[in-house]
Simulated assay, not measured.
Amino acid sequence: MFLTKLHLSVSPARLAAFGLVVLLFVSGCSGSDSSLGAPSSSASARNWSTAESSPTPTPAISRAATSARPSENVPLPVLPELAEQQSKEGLLAFTEYWYALATYAFETGDLSPLQEVSGPDCAICSRLYEMVELGYEDQDWIVGGNFTVGSTQSAYVLTSKDVYQVLAIVSQFHIQYRGPDNHLYEIEEGWTDTHMLEASYADGKWTAQDVVWFKAAGSEAPVLGNTG
């Protein structure tokens, strides 16, 4: 901020005349209506009307990542009310929400929402964290990596580890690791597999304590709710 000082040369005669004018002005105002110092009701109404007529901000447009730039304004997935319930339906809804947060992490590089609903010993979680952190080093970003959940099932039986198990058919879209100037570091192909998510419920919310790749023995259908 720059301040400019003005030096004025004022003669004694002019200064005396100025003081007389000020004195007359003050004397003349002493008998005036005190309401002049307060804003009128019409002025207040005009100010309120101006505030109400202010244009509504335009919502930011969400854009997926491309080879030329990272994603922009990606909305954070909202936890469904059903996913807050301690029930089989709530558990299945939470499972889909968990993968939505995993997608959000790949789209934005922000792992914190996923970490908040995941346990410290989650196997697949650790791998996802590494991939996202690598993909968003420096000014790099990830294109793709979105998850989709084809189907979910659960026997909704509490195991000896105090968790409920869910089998989910999960797919992940292929991943491009990108950098400035259209640089392509690596491509990872997409896949579809069966995951088993183990979740616990406490303090009114679900937590994914572990997520693993599930392989059924032979051609037999997987059995959930075991005590192991």
Rank of each mutant, 00 (worst) to 15 (best):
residue 49 S to E: 07
residue 73 N to H: 15
residue 61 I to R: 15
residue 147 F to D: 04
residue 207 T to G: 05
residue 108 T to P: 05
residue 86 Q to H: 12
residue 195 H to V: 03
residue 125 C to R: 15
residue 48 W to D: 13
residue 66 T to W: 09
residue 140 D to S: 11
residue 97 Y to V: 09
residue 74 V to E: 15
residue 103 T to Q: 00
residue 148 T to F: 06
residue 29 C to P: 02
residue 134 L to G: 06
residue 66 T to N: 03
residue 111 L to I: 08
residue 17 A to W: 00
residue 18 F to Y: 04
residue 14 R to Y: 10
residue 139 Q to G: 11
residue 38 A to D: 01
residue 36 L to D: 02
residue 76 L to Y: 10
residue 107 E to V: 02
residue 75 P to E: 13
residue 18 F to C: 08
residue 216 A to Y: 02
residue 112 S to M: 03
residue 83 A to P: 09
residue 13 A to I: 13
residue 52 E to Q: 15
residue 3 L to M: 10
residue 216 A to E: 03
residue 9 S to A: 04
residue 16 A to K: 14
residue 79 L to W: 11
residue 102 A to K: 11
residue 194 T to S: 00
residue 49 S to R: 07
residue 28 G to L: 07
residue 86 Q to F: 04
residue 186 E to C: 05
residue 12 P to A: 14
residue 204 G to C: 07
residue 203 D to N: 09
residue 9 S to E: 12
residue 57 P to V: 01
residue 35 S to I: 13
residue 37 G to R: 08
residue 21 V to R: 06
residue 134 L to H: 10
residue 100 A to H: 07
residue 10 V to N: 07
residue 208 A to L: 05
residue 149 V to S: 05
residue 157 V to E: 09
residue 22 V to H: 06
residue 219 S to A: 02
residue 190 G to R: 10
residue 198 E to V: 12
residue 9 S to G: 00
residue 154 S to P: 04
residue 77 P to S: 11
residue 208 A to R: 14
residue 228 G to H: 08
residue 183 H to G: 10
residue 156 Y to V: 05
residue 102 A to Y: 07
residue 6 L to K: 06
residue 152 T to C: 06
residue 149 V to F: 08
residue 135 G to F: 13
residue 163 V to Y: 04
residue 91 L to P: 10
residue 15 L to P: 12
residue 172 Q to C: 12
residue 136 Y to Q: 11
residue 29 C to G: 02
residue 160 S to P: 05
residue 166 V to D: 13
residue 148 T to E: 05
residue 183 H to D: 13
residue 97 Y to R: 12
residue 195 H to P: 02
residue 110 D to M: 10
residue 182 N to V: 02
residue 225 G to L: 07
residue 21 V to L: 00
residue 172 Q to Y: 04
residue 2 F to H: 13
residue 1 M to D: 01
residue 73 N to L: 01
residue 57 P to R: 09
residue 60 A to R: 05
residue 3 L to Q: 14
residue 154 S to E: 01
residue 164 Y to S: 06
residue 13 A to Y: 03
residue 27 S to M: 06
residue 63 R to W: 06
residue 129 Y to F: 10
residue 162 D to V: 01
residue 148 T to K: 11
residue 30 S to V: 03
residue 101 L to K: 11
residue 124 I to V: 09
residue 173 F to W: 06
residue 197 L to Y: 06
residue 132 V to N: 10
residue 104 Y to K: 05
residue 80 P to T: 12
residue 162 D to W: 09
residue 101 L to G: 09
residue 122 C to T: 15
residue 15 L to Q: 13
residue 115 Q to C: 06
residue 199 A to K: 10
residue 15 L to T: 12
residue 2 F to I: 14
residue 158 L to N: 03
residue 70 P to Y: 10
residue 61 I to Q: 15
residue 188 E to M: 07
residue 130 E to K: 15
residue 187 I to G: 04
residue 106 F to E: 00
residue 33 D to T: 09
residue 116 E to D: 14
residue 131 M to Y: 00
residue 221 A to H: 02
residue 221 A to P: 03
residue 201 Y to P: 01
residue 122 C to F: 08
